[in-house]
Design a protein around this nucleic acid. Sequence first.
DNA 1: ATGAAAGCGCTAACAA
DNA 2: TTGTTAGCGCTTTCAT
Lengths: 351, 351
Amino acid sequence: MTSTIKDVAAHAGFSIATVSRAINAPHTVNPVTLARVREAIDALKFSPSPLGRQLRGERTRLIGVVLPTLANPVFAECLQGIDELASAQGFRLMLMTTQYDAQRERHAIETLRAQRVEGLILTVADADTHPLLDELDADGPLYVLMHNDTKRRPSVSVDNHQAAFDGVRTLITHGHRRILMLAGTLAASDRARQRHAGYAQAMRQAGLTPAPALEIDFNAAELAPSVLAHLTTGPQRPTALFCSNDLLAMVVMRGLRRARMRVPQDMSILGFDGLAVSELLAPPLASIGTPNGEIGRSAWQRLMARIGGEYSGPSLGLALPHTLREGGTIAAIASVAHAGSAQRARSSIAS
Amino acid sequence: MTSTIKDVAAHAGFSIATVSRAINAPHTVNPVTLARVREAIDALKFSPSPLGRQLRGERTRLIGVVLPTLANPVFAECLQGIDELASAQGFRLMLMTTQYDAQRERHAIETLRAQRVEGLILTVADADTHPLLDELDADGPLYVLMHNDTKRRPSVSVDNHQAAFDGVRTLITHGHRRILMLAGTLAASDRARQRHAGYAQAMRQAGLTPAPALEIDFNAAELAPSVLAHLTTGPQRPTALFCSNDLLAMVVMRGLRRARMRVPQDMSILGFDGLAVSELLAPPLASIGTPNGEIGRSAWQRLMARIGGEYSGPSLGLALPHTLREGGTIAAIASVAHAGSAQRARSSIAS
DNA sequence: ATGAAAGCGCTAACAA
DNA sequence: TTGTTAGCGCTTTCAT
């Protein structure tokens, strides 16, 4: 294994060039020679070092993947999709996570670039205004964005605006009028903004007034009391929450339950991501689903197309279809009106 | 960026050797020279190609990670832990997943080895009988196993036997006597066997008869009718289920609910993994927790120790402490006895 | 303190 | 068809 092409050449009694050819262009070498070389390769358990090839300026067969985090299954699922195709096609993946930090995004890209990856698949905080991406556009490597829904750069995503619009429409259709949007770590991201825009449009179109997104630190795993109060008290309290991702929705759901609010009777909840696990909740979380595995695979294919030079210039941003999973966390507004009965039910659950 | 050490040398007016020294051993070069070289480096935005270094036989600063899947957050969390330390220490991670397939395990290891990784962190299906690991011991890169609980090789895990024992003890303490163990894809893995052994020991110690683990394909996302029947009907039906992982537990929980079984009143459930998401269920899943991030970090540290030559021979298998998260899915057996009331409750929920 | 040169494993002209 | 040779970018003797 630690043997080199030289060893094989010596063992087989030919030059290293012949060995190289035997490996890379078998048809150009005499069958008998070929056989001998192969024998030697087997005997020495030789496998050509990618390093030599890579340095030689050949294709490195290395793809860099930059993700915010793996703690969110969304990205783990994307990565899974990428990995499927990558390993099937003999590429190696180099992974870096950024924790949504611009500094780390820069570092990751530079590291990967230094490693001479042939391409990059990335999810960044903000795709439109990212100077790094301009640099990549300028002198490579080629990249495809994932989950960054932008028209200006090659990307695979869903139409976040439309998806949020559809979801909020559904809430409105169920009779909700006081709908609040909750956003997590993504608050500063392009996705969050687009989702909020979709929410706002749906609200306005129904003659309702959109509110700014309420930012939640969902790593805290506990809902802040002030937030909870905001959600649960007062005559203007929302009857439905649109959460910018499922993890957040799950945390909120739990927080509400602890405050003796019933979901969906006292509060409807709509998530975003369509995580497999969130469907296992009781009731299953209603959520706008993004085809994560497919997004990963699709990003891979686009990247390969770009690398192969068959890049279709016109369609920069590819939006895959989103789905609307109607779980059990959306109630028609009628059932919310009866504060009295909700009250009763609540106390019956109490401790 | 695409500039080489040569360009820098030319630009600075020194030889490439001096540039190399300026980078790797600044103190050995004249301060004035150093300044000039650095200037050139900045001007050309030069960063040394890892490829050259790697080929030169230097350290590649590359670590391979081999995991069964990323669809299970357990591994995503481990990877997250690894990545934290790796990027902090300037290492690059090369990732491959195996889908629990021995063939792919082999392929992954060979690929990574060919890439000249300095070390390997892996989770394999069966650590004890794995011929590949013997090869690695012989002349592979150094490795550390993760979540493979074996005494024979360097590994970081929990004591699966003990953990399962503790968990099942708790079920028994709650009065359960007919406890069944359910296993998923891991059925063939060393972990699953150890967990089953722990289950069996706890059962026997309480004078109960352990049953073979019931194998469930939890990728199906639906419980097979035959399985469901097995769990829910007959006088010998179990009152508690010990699931070999949380994902499985979640699927089972949902399946039971659909069959109008209440958790925990009609069936207690104990999971394994302690996933963050499973705690967001209602009720929160009782689960034996493994410190995944910590396992990842710990595996990293052991690997670094081995690579650095400070390997502590004696303690091959490191078992991190597991936790027992007592969620809401375990009921004392008394409440199960009243089949009548359960029946009533069930029908009141019906459709 | 600096430079010249060899070589890591490999591929691709170019020769024979 | 096969061999010779020149690098790819870098580090590292060994000279100077």
